[in-house]
Design a protein around this nucleic acid. Structure first.
Length: 461
RNA sequence: AGAGGGUUGGGUGAGUGGCUUAAACCAGCAGUUUGCUAAACUGUCGUACGCCUAAAAGUGUACCGGGGGUUCGAAUCCCCCACCCUCUACCA
């Protein structure tokens, strides 16, 4: 009885991705969605110092200056609106007067009054233009502002400033002659990068035989576990329109990182977070619907422009990968409890897979643009002797809800912005990398017990 | 893809330039009546942004798929776009 939201979740089933030619377009400018809720401005006005402090924690430049600009423009916007509205009110009442005169047959009187309206009309038109420009300016400015971090988020510039919250599981000792996963996949012929390069390009591997079955098994395992945890399964489109991109915050921030089909102006999703959260765009849900918990499996696509280097060999970084994503929409007062629950849930998956992991609390500078608080889960990959990020669990508080216009109606009948959260549960490639590396023996690679029913085999050999 | 028909509040659905302040009904909410349920009756019932308030109340503007235009005045007339339905064609 988790969330039967009035037909909200009827998602189109599959799309013919093959029929569409994708064009990669780093900078595509077009109209941004209209209608901007002003609640974010209200927050900035009422909590100016908190907002400035928060952005500074992110190492965000010119925080004070930009936020002051927001307030200044908003002030002008209000003044312009008041002026415009009162003139429009006058015009409306004159029009009514004219209507009454015409019906009474007093044409001459009506003509006299008309002269007055033409003056007002011009003024209204000018004010209307000013107002639209101010709103657009404000909107563009707000789009450049990232979320304000939760007060408990540590300040910091890079990943080196993240806090390790906990470590769990033991790091295996591997036999002499162990290999990193990019060698193992060749040895057992289960994932083929060369073949992927031939048909698409670098970063699009082909999974073969037990490698393909491992993918399928993991996806099913993750979906089943989420179901048991009360998540409602959805299968969303993997192409989204521009408005969806703005609503969850990928646009304009990640413009160049998404594959873009220019002919239809659609984006290939970088994460299922985008379509699943957007299911609730523009909705006013009932407080009693909370918590809304959805899970979905999708392939994810990332251009990863300019981010290739020494540490991204093999499965460590791909252009296309599979991920199961969990999304929650909650009451503002319950969102941090939900975050902890999600964190525990993801950790449970890693425990079941027998992978040693640690949990990081991200510092302001390393958090995503839209997040107020993020836990990263990292798995230790024994042959590479390094930690690999496999999940990111975030609370966006009202940041996405503000753009989505996702509100709930409380007992007092008032509408309030909800909180949105999401987490990877889980992303496959690095899980596969660490499973292969950590479980390698001379004989072959032993699959975790929990996966065997999903795979139909115990060893890759 | 071609032709035709559509898109109005949570739902059904009226509305061909001013009597619309978007009718009516259903659902919802509050109340009255009632031994309970049901029914009946009365009232209420959209969203956003302003103004005014300590707050409420009140009040202004905008919104009838989206954008633009004509007009003193547009749900209504004109143009562009999106989506839905039917038929034809094609196709997993």
């Amino acid at each position: 009885m988790v969330n039967k939201n009035r037909g909200l979740l009827k998602v189109p089933f599959s799309i013919q991705t093959t029929a569409i030619i994708f064009t990669i377009f780093a900078l595509y400018n077009s109209n941004t969605p209209k209608q901007l809720t002003m609640l974010q401005v209200n927050f900035i006005r009422d909590n100016f110092d908190i907002a400035v402090g928060g952005l500074k924690k992110r190492n965000f430049p010119q925080a004070e200056n930009l936020l002051s600009q927001v307030l200044e423009i908003d002030k002008k916007r209000k003044e312009t609106q008041s002026h415009r509205d009162s003139l429009q009110a006058e015009s409306n009442s004159i029009s009514k007067e004219i209507g009454a005169l015409m019906q009474a047959g007093k044409k001459e009187d009506a003509e006299k009054v008309k002269a007055r309206t033409s003056v007002i009309k011009g003024q209204v038109k000018a004010l209307e233009n000013d107002f639209d420009q101010l709103e657009e300016k404000l909107r563009q400015l707000l789009y450049t502002l990232p979320n304000i971090p939760h007060h408990s988020v540590p300040a910091g510039i890079s990943e080196e400033d993240n806090e390790v919250v906990l470590e769990n599981g033991s790091i295996p000792t591997l036999y002499e002659g162990n290999r990193p996963h990019w060698e193992l996949i060749k040895k057992y012929d289960i994932i083929d990068f060369e073949l992927g390069t031939k048909i698409t390009g670098a970063g699009f591997p082909v999974y073969k035989g037990k490698g393909a079955r491992l993918q399928r098994g993991l996806v099913n395992f993750f979906l089943d576990e989420a179901f048991k945890q009360g998540y409602y399964e959805v299968q969303p489109p993997i192409l989204v329109n521009e408005e969806s991109g703005y609503a969850t915050g990928q646009l304009p921030d990640k413009e160049g990182q998404m594959y873009h089909d220019a002919s239809e102006n659609l984006y290939l999703i970088p994460t299922a977070e985008v379509p699943i959260t957007n299911l609730y765009r523009g909705e006013i849900v009932n407080e009693s619907d909370f918590p809304i918990k959805n899970v979905g499996f999708t392939p994810c696509f990332r251009r990863e422009a300019g981010s290739w280097g020494a540490h991204v060999r093999g499965l460590n970084r791909l252009h296309q990968f599979d991920k199961v994503e969990v999304v929650q929409i909650t009451h503002p007062e319950k969102s941090y409890a939900a975050l902890e629950e999600m964190s525990k849930y993801v950790q449970g998956l890693l425990q079941k897979l027998g992978l040693p992991y640690r949990v990081l609390k991200l510092c302001g500078g390393d958090m995503g643009f839209t997040s107020a608080f993020t836990y990263d889960m990292e798995v230790y990959s024994a042959a590479q002797e390094r930690w690999l990020e496999v999940s990111s669990v975030s609370n966006f508080e009202t940041y996405q809800a503000n753009r989505l216009k996702l509100r709930f109606r409380g007992e007092d009948k008032k509408t309030t912005l909800a909180h949105t959260l999401n987490g990877s549960a889980l992303a496959l490639p690095r899980i596969v990398a660490s499973l292969l590396e950590n479980n390698q023996h001379e004989k072959g690679i032993k699959m975790p017990e929990v996966l065997v029913p999903y795979l139909g085999f115990e060893w890759i050999e």
